[in-house]
Every structure is written in structure tokens, then in C-alpha cells.
Design a protein around this nucleic acid. Structure first.
Lengths: 155, 155
DNA sequence: GTTTTCTTGACTAATGTTGACTAATATTAT
DNA sequence: ATAATATTAGTCAACATTAGTCAAGAAAAC
């Protein structure tokens, strides 16, 4: 823990607020200043850690009084939950984004911890590794979608 | 013990920490420096001495604040059974034979019906379908083995 | 002597950080 | 109203910082 990078620290800070209050609204320059980073780093943190796969929706506005608002969405409330995850997967998906999808499934209560581990094993880099990165991402997407579609009917 | 090579020494060092603390997190370059070896030797030590068969799970992250984390996991008592299935899968497996492996898992009580369906979805022909039959069988084998390896321990 | 294991380093890949430039929106001046 | 200016956030590419892979050669075991 003594050597966390600054992106992780900013992520933690924002998620801590989100743990209590459903949404957080920031001024980009203010947060950047607070953590002593350039403003665009805030975009990086959001882009890599607050995606729809992670269960967050981000809105922003430029100009005077501008803001970035991060909202935690409750996926279970959404009847098209599986549909939205399938859409999020698309026809290519990285391991990183695949992990986020599985985490969303877990957080939504659609799968338990044991099932999470089985799914992660199925889309692991050691499992899907043809040597062609693009092909791997396609296969990973299909495997994930196949699992998602089965969950639709099983649960 | 009088003729230990450097890999053995690094192994001992890490296992000594693990004897007390469930997991150890290192910076590869730091440990390499400490023992005066090239960084990739750390990968060698981990790959040969901290496998899932030994009861270790390894995670890592690159980039700033990167790390290698080795976690000691509690192995289950079905190891020989899993070994035999891994051997049966080999490096190629058809859907038909894959189904038999999954059925064995179920009949042995290693997985429940829901888990069976998740695994079957993962190795389904629609999920793994590159157009190259041989490649599909290789991928299916790796996906299955990855799942089998995760069934070795409690998580 | 052969085979296996260990050691090394060049190359690759993933992730994080920074800053110059762009775009959108609001405010102020005309 | 319109134009100019100020005030925000977004994008992108270069660079930095980590770990991973692989294959060749050395050392050890057999």
C-alpha cells in the first residue's frame, strides 16, 4: 500500500464518496489541483475506472460552472441488465473490461463468488491466448456473451 | 542446503514472508536488485515455484505503481481428480469430450448444476468458433483447464 | 554426453503521467 | 443580437514506469 500510484488514489477518493452518496460532482481542475496532477489525469482515471462496465455513468459540462458528475447506476433495477452487459461487451473485449463486466454481474447479485471465479478462469489470458490479440478479444467477447445469455435463462 | 542456487534463495525468501502473512506483494525490479539478478529471473522463480499446484495464485500489474502479488490459497482435497481431468483434456478437446469432462465434475460433486451451465456456455460452439476447428479445440482445452485449475482451491 | 534447470538480456506489452491543443459553454462588451 | 473573451472539460500523442516473454547460453544433474 505504500506505493500506490496517483490514479488509484484518486479512484479511491471518488469511490469513497460514492459509497455514501450515489453520485459525486467535481470540478476537474479542483481535483487535479488537490492531488497535484494535470487536469487530464482526471479524465484518465474516469476513463479507466468509472466505465459503464463498472456500473458508472459519467456526465459533464464545459464552460463556466462546468463539472464532471459520476453516478453509480443500480443495474438490478434495470430489467435489461443482461442486455446492457451484452452491449457493453460488444464483439471485442479486453481482459480489463471483461473483468469489469464480471464484477458488475457479481455486484448485481446475478452470480456468486464461486461463479465469478469460474467465469474469470474462462476468460483468463492463459485460457484465451492464440497469439493474435484481436482474435483473443473476439473469442473473449463471445465466451462472455455466451455465459451472459445462459444466465438470462438460468436465473 | 549447502548448494542453493539463487532461484532457491529467492524462493525461500518469499516463502518465509508467506509463512507469516498469507500474501506478499513485491516490486519486481526491487527484488531483482536486492538479490542482484535480472528482473526476468523473478518471473522464472514464480513460474517454477509458485504455481497453482503448489497452492499459490499470482497477480500482477504493470506501469507506475506496478507490483507482483503472490497469494497462498487453501487447496481443496480433490486435487488428484482435477489432475486426471486436466490430463484428459490435454491440449485439444472436442465439444463432445469437453461435455464428458464437465459431466464428470458434476457427478463428482465438484460443481453444481448452475456452474455446469456456466462452464458449458463458456465452451459452447457458438462461443468458441474461429472457423479453424483445430484452433477451437485448443482454445476449448485451455479454457477448460483454466476453469479446472480454479476449482483446485477455495476463493 | 545428454538432458534438465538456471541465468541473462533483448525485446514486448500494459499501465500511468504529462502537456499541447481542441471543443463546448458561459459571460461580457458592443 | 452578435461578437469577443473567459472558463471550463475533452482528446491525443509523447514519454515514463512498470512487468512479461522468449530464446540463447551456462551450469548442474543424471
Amino acid at each position: 500500500m505504500e506505493n500506490q500510484n496517483i490514479s488509484d488514489i484518486i479512484e479511491s477518493y471518488l469511490k469513497q464518496i460514492l459509497a455514501e452518496s450515489q453520485q459525486v460532482e467535481i470540478r476537474r481542475a479542483e481535483i487535479a489541483d488537490q492531488f497535484n496532477v494535470v487536469p487530464s489525469q482526471i479524465n484518465y482515471v474516469i476513463k479507466t475506472r468509472f466505465t459503464i462496465q463498472d456500473g458508472y455513468v459519467v456526465q459533464s459540462k464545459r464552460g463556466g460552472g462546468g463539472y464532471i458528475r459520476i453516478e453509480k447506476v443500480k443495474l438490478l433495477d434495470n430489467l435489461d441488465f443482461i442486455d446492457s452487459l451484452v452491449a457493453a461487451v460488444g464483439d471485442h473485449i479486453t481482459r480489463h473490461d471483461g473483468l469489469a463486466v464480471v464484477r458488475s454481474l457479481f455486484e448485481a447479485g446475478a452470480v456468486n463468488r464461486r461463479e465469478v471465479n469460474i467465469i474469470l478462469a474462462a476468460i483468463d489470458k492463459d485460457a484465451i491466448n492464440t497469439g493474435d490479440r484481436d482474435l483473443d478479444q473476439q473469442i473473449r467477447a463471445r465466451v462472455l456473451i455466451s455465459i451472459l445469455n445462459h444466465l438470462r435463462y438460468e436465473s
